[in-house]
Design a protein around this nucleic acid. Structure first.
Lengths: 211, 211
DNA sequence: GTCTATAGATTGATAGAC
DNA sequence: GTCTATCAATCTATAGAC
């Protein structure tokens, strides 16, 4: 029953509307109306609008982070077993694939991915911190692992290239099957699986580029 | 005198606050107070808050688009003169460099670049269209030129890779000298010139990657 | 836990004097 | 063109009945 209780319905509605309209452009009234619950229910169950956003993000990001960590650890362990350095592409896959593949988990998941894709460039600091605080440990592990894979790159250069990677990734996350620049003369977009492989190929080549 | 008149002061203040806090999180009162003009002046000179945003974007984006078009045309003309295809890197430079180098034009320009960098993933459609409508012709020219440079890529693949490029670019634009993920243990960021060269190297390698 | 009712603040926009 | 004053709508949050 939990998927039909008040708290979950609020989380689902918040996820959808925050993703579609942005945090500041979404009112509690719109959320409670979509969730078919009373206006006061948000403050009763979550305390405030901002705490609701935090709950929306945590619900899915905590498991996602665990999965990413597990996959990165697996790549590191496999490399350590052979004594070789981990491959950059395997690390990129461990970081990127769980995130983007998660979109297929359903329409709510798709909303969520768009929401956190946009959180990276969110102007409001309190909103951005809701997301960054949860991702930072994961990101540190990812960056340190990449240093093992690409030891020849100065760390400032590697960091810049990782930021380019995050940018490409978050841009894809924001666009749920529709390109940001929606030109009628544009070619038909790739399916999600192909898109992920293309992204991996793109950022691997970029990260491994000569200086 | 025009740089101290009411209209310009409103444009400057709007540019700064829209970039820093986002459109929906910026009030007309905040703008007129920063600009030291009367509250009613915005509606008198621009008609509405949204029309002000449009004016803020147009003021700098129209010249920037002209510059980008000129540089892309120059690359195409040079290639046509030798009978060879244009190089992907030269086209990328023509599209990216004017935008990012424009940050050095001053603090207002820096705000502006962050503002349009975020416009790509702006949730609100009316806000996003303020920006996309102005960029689309420029983008079409860019994409069609790249098809000449990389004729072996299916256009859907090229479009995906160009979207990755836009993502990396807009991410850099959003972060004015401070990385989105601001980790105290992170290396010191690169200076702007080096950053642009690194971005060009990254996206060129990504675009030219084998399939 | 859920509801109504409302407080208290802020918003974009405008009317009308000067 | 600039100002004051204000309208009407919206917002988050809460108090208190049930």
């Amino acid at each position: 029953m939990s998927q039909f209780d008040t708290k979950t319905r609020i989380l689902d509605a918040g996820e959808h509307l925050f993703a579609r309209d942005g945090f500041h452009n979404t009112s509690l009234r719109a959320i409670t109306s979509l969730a078919k619950v009373n206006l006061a229910a948000v403050n009763y169950h979550f305390g405030s609008k901002e705490a609701l956003l935090q709950a929306v993000i945590e619900r899915r990001l905590l498991p996602l982070n665990q999965l990413r960590k597990k996959q990165i650890d697996a790549v590191l362990a496999a490399a350590a077993a052979t004594g070789a350095a981990p491959s950059a592409k395997a690390l990129l896959r461990a970081f990127i694939e769980p995130t983007l593949a998660f979109r297929s988990a359903g329409p709510g998941a798709q909303d969520f991915i768009a929401l956190i894709g946009r959180s990276m460039s969110e102007p409001d600091e309190t909103v951005r911190n809701c997301f960054i605080g949860l991702v930072l440990p994961n990101f540190r592990l990812f960056f340190e692992s990449l240093q093992l894979a690409l030891p020849q790159l100065p760390s400032a250069v590697l960091m810049a290239r990782v930021q380019f990677t995050l940018g490409a990734m978050s841009h894809v996350m924001c666009t749920s099957h529709k390109p940001i620049i929606n030109d009628p003369s544009a070619p038909k977009p790739l399916d999600d699986t192909t898109l992920i492989e293309q992204l991996l190929q793109f950022v691997t080549s970029g990260l491994e580029a000569p200086q």
